[in-house]
Simulated scan of single mutants.
Amino acid sequence: MTSPTPARAIERLRAATRHDHRRLEDDLQVMRRLATPNGQRSMIGRYYDLHAPAECALAPLVADIPGLDFRLRRRAGLLEAALGQLGVRSPAEPSGPVPAIGSTAEALGFLYVLEGSSLGGRVILKTLAKGGHETGMLGFLDPYGPATGEMWRRFLAVLDRETSGDDGRVEAAVAGGLKGFAYARYCLCDEALAA
């Protein structure tokens, strides 16, 4: 009798975070928020609060993973530039209680949330532009341009390689994904819900 093939991390991540992903999209209402100059200003700051601390926390665990090119995946610099265009100084030290991330697999699960947003970011920018909205400061939503699909496939290949055949690592990646969505919600939505 053969044992069942373990689920790939991406399949488990998608299944485990589906509800959190949908809830984040529903509550954030990103298209509405990015359709006005004031909304853009607020959201650029919120995205900075998400990316800058998360990237600092993830770097020690993922920066040296072969094939990941984490340096190219960081968006805090793009967000700092956008804040500069708005005349807003970014904090010297990133703030925000990034959840503790204990392993490379967990870090990759968290990064799944940040990387996945680049796929939706392209769609958001195109939709805003078609609606006649200014998008000049929103380049952080589409950091890879036409290479977005290739960068996503490379991320999935690294995730698969780093967790393949190890249920413990897959579970750690799932835990990281859940933490990533919770942190994204904290940074992007929670205060906005009361506004």
Rank of each mutant, 00 (worst) to 15 (best):
S3A: 14
T163M: 03
R14A: 10
G77H: 15
M43T: 03
G84L: 00
A147S: 10
N38K: 13
I44F: 00
A147F: 13
G39V: 01
V88N: 00
G109S: 04
S117D: 04
S103D: 04
T127D: 14
G96I: 06
A52V: 14
A57G: 06
R22I: 12
C187F: 03
D49A: 03
R153G: 01
A81C: 06
L138W: 00
A81L: 08
L119D: 06
K179A: 04
P91G: 08
P94C: 09
G120P: 05
E55H: 08
Q29L: 07
G149I: 08
D167R: 03
D64G: 13
M1L: 13
L68Y: 07
L178C: 13
I101G: 02
M31G: 05
G102S: 15
L68Q: 06
G39F: 04
E171N: 13
G149D: 09
R22Q: 13
Y47N: 02
R169H: 09
A172S: 03
D160A: 07
V174R: 01
A9T: 05
E134H: 07
A9F: 06
L125C: 14
G67V: 11
P60R: 15
L79I: 12
T104S: 15
G132S: 10
A175I: 01
G149E: 08
D190L: 04
V30T: 08
G87A: 08
V98H: 02
F155Q: 04
D49M: 00
L78C: 05
G168C: 04
A195K: 05
G87S: 11
R32M: 13
F70I: 11
G116E: 11
G132H: 12
F140H: 00
Y183E: 02
S95T: 13
G45C: 05
R75N: 05
A63I: 15
